[in-house]
Structure formats: structure tokens, C-alpha cells
């Protein structure tokens, strides 16, 4: 029974990890841009959430809405003002640029907010629980999983059903040819980066509600995001979701067996998958199930 509870909590945590990976994976899938600053933007979003949460009506968890809007605008500005200037066949300038942004952002946060550990207060919901099949689970982690699932599904539907979603998919396939159809790929890239940042910001705020964060948490968040994206299979949508699940479950089961292990076993699983299937879960799925 205790294992069932651990696995259920692993799934809850995994949903959030998947959401952390989604922003990075989406930006990479559309633009082939690796935004190294994503982890620090996630922390910055948590700070914005920390200060906005007391002002949000109904329930503090709704703070994800204004934070997502702010992050969307920041993403557009980041792409238009900085990343669009270094686009090209060589990816090193993008990585250096976003790495620089990450350092500036992190130190600005230390200077502005101090290095203390913080957490977003969600009031009584943090301690509420419910019974399912005889096991006791937390309401907040379950709500966070539902939000993550809804965001994955909403993004998937929007990409496949809307006009702009179609242009984003076309741009991801061939950003040069899409211009011949009258599409400015720079504009599409800016919107895609806005969406990636909004998704990451939601993940950052939810993570700050479940646990704590400091201005230095960005590197850990980025590592999780990278592992989710690579385990899932670069650019694979639902692969990322299950990648997050796998990391979350592994981490909690391992902590039960070896309380001092931290994220180590998650990293070990990551390496095993990378060796067995360099294309991640999506690659293994295509090979084994679809036999391609």
C-alpha cells in the first residue's frame, strides 16, 4: 500500500516535471533553439508569483494566469530583441546568449530578493488530503497534475486545430519555405517563445507552491527540463509527458529505498535510457511498437 502511495505521488510530481520540460521541448521543437536561461526564468516566474499571489481572488493557485501572461510577453521580447538576432546554422551563439541571460537574471534575483529560501503560500490547500482506493493523497499535488495534463492537452489541440498552430507546425518543419507562403518566421518564433515561457512560468509557480525555491534553483530546474525532453525523445510531445512521469516516480521510489539519494537515481535512469534508446521513449515506441 505504501508503494502504491509512493507511485501515485511520483505520478503527481512527474506531471509537474513534464510541464517543466514542455517549455524547453516546445521551443526546441519549433525553433531548434536551446534556451539555457529557461531554468532561471522558471525561478523568476516563481518570484513574480510569490508577490502576486496575495492579490489574487478566489484561490492563490489562480496566480498562474497573470504570471503566464507576463511570461508570454517576456518570451516575445526575449525572442524579438535578442534571440532572433543570432539565428542561423550555428547554434553556439544562441546557447552563449541564453547562458549570459541566465547569469544576469540569476544575479539580479539574488541582488533583488536575497538568497533565502521562499515558497508560495496557497493557504489551507497545502494540507488538504483525500482518500483514493484506501490511500491518502494530497489535494495540491493532484490539482497540479490536472493542470499539467490540461496544458499538455490544450497545447496539443491548439497546435492541431488552430490557424496559428498550423503555421507553427509548418514553421517547425521548414522555416525557410514557410516564408514563401507569406509567413514571417521571426514573428512565429516570437509567439512560440512566448508560449514556451508561459508554460515554463506556470511550472515554476506550481513548483514553488509544492516546495521551496531560491534564486539559485534555476540550474536544478533546467537539468530536470533537459532530462524530461531527452528521455521523451527530442520534440516528442507525449514522450515528454511520460518522461516526466518516469523521472517523478523514479525519484520518489528511490527516496523511499535510499533516503539520502536525492535526484541521483533519476539521473541514472536518464543515462540508462540515453544508452538504450538515444531517441528517448518516443524513439523506442516507434521502434518496438510501430516497428519503423
Amino acid at each position: 500500500m505504501i508503494w502504491l502511495e509512493t507511485i501515485a505521488n511520483g505520478i503527481f510530481l512527474g506531471g509537474l516535471y513534464a510541464l517543466i520540460g514542455l517549455g524547453l521541448g516546445f521551443a526546441f521543437g519549433v525553433m531548434r533553439v536551446v534556451n539555457v536561461a529557461q531554468g532561471d526564468f522558471i525561478v523568476a516566474a516563481a518570484f513574480i508569483g510569490l508577490y502576486l499571489a496575495p492579490w489574487v481572488p478566489i484561490n492563490p493557485i489562480l496566480v498562474i494566469v497573470p504570471v503566464a501572461v507576463i511570461a508570454f510577453l517576456i518570451g516575445i521580447a526575449l525572442q524579438r530583441l535578442l534571440i532572433n538576432r543570432v539565428l542561423g546554422h550555428d547554434q553556439i551563439p544562441q546557447i552563449l546568449l541564453t547562458f549570459g541571460v541566465a547569469i544576469v537574471l540569476r544575479n539580479a534575483m539574488v541582488a533583488g530578493f536575497g538568497a533565502n529560501s521562499q515558497s508560495i503560500d496557497v493557504g489551507a490547500m497545502r494540507f488538504l488530503g483525500f482518500n483514493l482506493l484506501g490511500i491518502r493523497l494530497g489535494v495540491l499535488p493532484a490539482v497540479i497534475l490536472v493542470i499539467a495534463l490540461l496544458l499538455f492537452a490544450a497545447l496539443h489541440l491548439w497546435l492541431h486545430r488552430s490557424r496559428l498552430g498550423r503555421l507553427i507546425r509548418a514553421t517547425a518543419d521548414d522555416y525557410q519555405v514557410v516564408q514563401l507562403q507569406g509567413v514571417s518566421y521571426r514573428r512565429v518564433f516570437a509567439i512560440a517563445m512566448g508560449i514556451a515561457m508561459a508554460l515554463s512560468a506556470v511550472a515554476g509557480v506550481l513548483l514553488a507552491m509544492r516546495g521551496s525555491f531560491t534564486p539559485y534553483s534555476g540550474a536544478d530546474r533546467l537539468l530536470i527540463a533537459f532530462e524530461v525532453v531527452v528521455i521523451g525523445g527530442l520534440g516528442s510531445f507525449w514522450g515528454m509527458f511520460f518522461g516526466g512521469m518516469l523521472l517523478g516516480i523514479t525519484q520518489l521510489v528511490a527516496l523511499k529505498l535510499d533516503p539520502a539519494s536525492g535526484l541521483m537515481y533519476g539521473h541514472i535512469v536518464f543515462f540508462i535510457i540515453l544508452i538504450l534508446s538515444p531517441n528517448g521513449l518516443a524513439g523506442a515506441f516507434r521502434r518496438v511498437v510501430l516497428r519503423k
Partner: peptide, 13 residues
């Protein structure tokens, strides 16, 4: 656009 359907390819225009 290899991952899009025929119709989506046309509609990009």
C-alpha cells in the same frame, strides 16, 4: 511540411 497533412500544407498558403 512533412509532418502536416496535405490539406494543412495547402492551408498554410
Amino acid at each position: 511540411f512533412g509532418s502536416l497533412t496535405v490539406e494543412d500544407n495547402l492551408l498554410v498558403g
